[in-house]
């Protein structure tokens, strides 16, 4: 076994590659269930895409607050959210105004995605969202 240098290196490299592949598996197109990526305007304006976590918000607010009271459409991509609107108190800006939640000066907390992410709702646990079947 391992008689020459080359075969040893092949085995070590294969193990390494295999391990890296396995280790990388959970990070392929994953997020917490219900996370929404908003990248209609972010990349185009040299900002990181926004990752909106439903789980974090629904602990604090019922769905009806954003989707009825504030008027967010219940479809990823159905809301034309611009930064100007948010600063003007629309969309996220209805809470993220320094009164209910922190202000829009904390750019990096929302704009936290990797560049190039595709807009839409993402799943993970068991399903990847509607329309994937």
């Amino acid at each position: 076994m391992f008689q020459n240098k080359a075969s040893r290196w092949i085995i070590v490299s294969l193990t390494l590659v295999f391990s890296l592949l396995l280790a990388g598996l959970p990070s392929v197109a994953n997020a917490e269930y219900g996370d929404v990526i908003l990248n209609k305007y972010s990349d185009a304006n040299d900002m990181a895409p926004v990752i909106y976590p439903h789980w974090f918000h629904r602990i604090r607010f019922q769905c009806k607050v954003c989707h009825s009271e504030l008027g967010f459409k219940m479809k990823a991509g159905g809301n034309d959210v611009t930064m100007a609107d948010i600063v003007d108190g629309q969309f996220c800006g209805m809470c993220h105004n320094g009164e209910i939640a922190w202000t829009t000066e904390n750019c990096e907390l929302c704009h936290s995605g990797k560049p190039g992410l595709k807009s839409g709702i993402i799943g993970t646990h068991k399903t990847l969202g509607p329309g994937i079947w």
Binding site: I51, E108, S112, G113, K114
Partner: peptide, 12 residues
Amino acid sequence: GDGNHDRRNKTA
């Protein structure tokens, strides 16, 4: 480790 958040974003 979720593959979507940018680890270089130290604040986040």
